[in-house]
Design a protein around this nucleic acid. Structure first.
Lengths: 301, 301
DNA sequence: CTTGCCGCTCGAATTTTTCGCACACAGGAA
DNA sequence: TTCCTGTGTGCGAAAAATTCGAGCGGCAAG
């Protein structure tokens, strides 16, 4: 279906070199095959086969057409497989683990877009500390996850990554927002809001950042990024985060993000992880493709 | 033709976002278009469009199919153009100029293969000295030509090139054939057969070769490469040529060719030339493609 | 030389597919 | 409501593809 029978007829005739043999394997009358071939030749205005005793052989034009036909049919088979995958993925359940920066903006928006095309898929999203995301995926407690790359990873593979440096987040009219980048000395002159948690995520990456965090007494400490976000908009102070949790506010112009003058944090990367061995279910496989696309598009912008 | 109407229907519906509009531009009834779309969706087992008020919009599966369809139709247009070119090239006349090394073996065989696919094409082949080939093409006295590259070339472009170093040609059982390469000192101990002509073709390339040619008194001098070839097989002496004129004899094992120990001649290249400005006729254009393919295949072997 | 076989081609009847028309149905706008 | 605009659906007509049967030319064995 979809593609005209003439394509299959032509391919089989070219393959077998004989109309009768082709008709036999196609389970149609030889005259039908013959007609289609004649029609093709009339349509192109040139012979597609040389008739010699014992069969047909392709002319140059015929070889060109054969290549077109085989390419088309192969491509169609791939398409059919892809659509079958899509159909299998129409419903199901996906469990996602992610560091909470992603949960505030990027992931909900991505899932909302995904929902349009796969309405029957359900999700379980759990916030976790960076190393826990990896262990959850490895243990099978999550299908896919977002976390910082560079963890010791066994049985987890990275699908896509983007640079996600830690920087200073503040209200858009904050004095520091006037600078292109900010060093720790400047930063220490303003009250700091920090996210509490078992282990500060960038601490093992950059010594200077870890030292700064130890030296400073936070004006506000909370494990709720929403709490910190509201405090930022009230100008209670500044905080240290990746841009990803504040995309919406930055775009609206409420919040500003500026890079930190520190070589270590600049190399921080956030990635989409999936189990290395285990096969993902159809909906998870589709979602992973989509999220990887989103990440790459985001990285390009 | 060739491709099912459903393809065009689907593409137009996707483009216009409406079955009725698509039907209007396709000059068919809307119901016909609708049916084809429904058939496609039934065949794939999934919706290709989301039905919303005011028209249709592609689903993910629909977008995959659209890409397949547009790719296929574009490729088909290219195919049609290529076949039209072929048809236009079925008959006509091509004039070729070439240095005579090519006329002995390579060119006649190539034209013989070409003749199978383009039986009605006629040819005029003229042997010429290397610089004359270029001027003939520039003047319009030849459609295409084979000669050594590196000529001062105005209004001539090179389609393909191969390395064609000058070496020593001799009978396969000649003493020199035991060596992998030969220098002028060794060569001077054997009688030389040379091709006469206004200007020895490699003379302006390599000083050592030119000096050798001046210093030696040829045992036989002829402007007929056939004469020289026969004399070689009778072991009258050795000669200096490109391999290209002796492919057949080398393959048969009658004649041997060994490279010359001289840096200049090693860089000699032979190329297929066509006019840079002027448009070639259809048969000449086809022939040029074939010859370029032949040359490249020969270079790879 | 005849006979049998194989392969392509052609014509007419038949089956399958497609099309056009009319209309039903649904949702938003005046 | 009525009037659009849009898709989906029967049904008879038209077009296209298929099958069957026959014919033509070439080749090889007898």
């Amino acid at each position: 279906m979809l593609h005209a029978a003439a394509l299959h007829y032509f391919r089989e005739v070219a393959r077998s070199g004989s109309i009768r043999r082709a008709a036999a394997t196609l389970n149609v009358a030889a005259s039908a095959v013959n007609r289609q071939i004649l029609n093709l030749e009339a349509a192109f205005g040139t012979a597609l086969f040389d008739r010699l005793r014992g069969g047909l052989r392709l002319t140059v034009a015929g070889e060109l057409l054969l290549r077109h036909v085989t390419d088309t049919l192969h491509d169609f088979e791939r398409l059919r497989a892809a659509i079958d995958d899509l159909r299998a993925a129409r419903s199901g359940h996906v469990t996602i683990a992610a560091v909470d920066s992603l949960l505030v903006d990027f992931l909900p928006r991505a899932l909302d877009r995904f929902r349009i095309d796969f309405p029957a898929v359900t999700y379980a999203v759990t916030a976790a500390q960076p190393p826990d995301v990896v262990t959850m995926i490895a243990a099978g407690d999550a299908d896919i996850g977002f976390t910082f790359v560079g963890q010791a990873l066994h049985s987890v593979r990275w699908i896509a990554e983007i640079a996600a440096p830690i920087g200073v987040v503040m209200r858009a009219d904050h004095p520091l927002a006037a600078r292109a980048s900010i060093d720790f000395e400047e930063l220490s002159r303003y009250p700091i809001l920090t996210q509490s948690g078992p282990l500060p995520k960038g601490a093992d990456i950059d010594g200077a950042l870890a030292a700064f965090k130890r030296s400073v007494t936070p004006k506000l400490q909370s494990n709720s990024i929403q709490m910190i976000k509201l405090s930022l908009t009230l100008d209670m102070g500044v905080s240290l985060f990746t841009r990803l949790g504040f995309l919406h506010e930055i775009e609206k112009g409420d919040i500003a993000w500026r890079p930190l003058d520190s070589p270590g944090v600049a190399t921080l990367r956030l990635g989409l992880a999936a189990p290395a061995q285990r096969e993902l279910g159809p909906p998870a496989a589709q979602l992973v493709r989509r999220l990887a696309d989103d990440l790459r598009r985001f990285a390009a912008a």
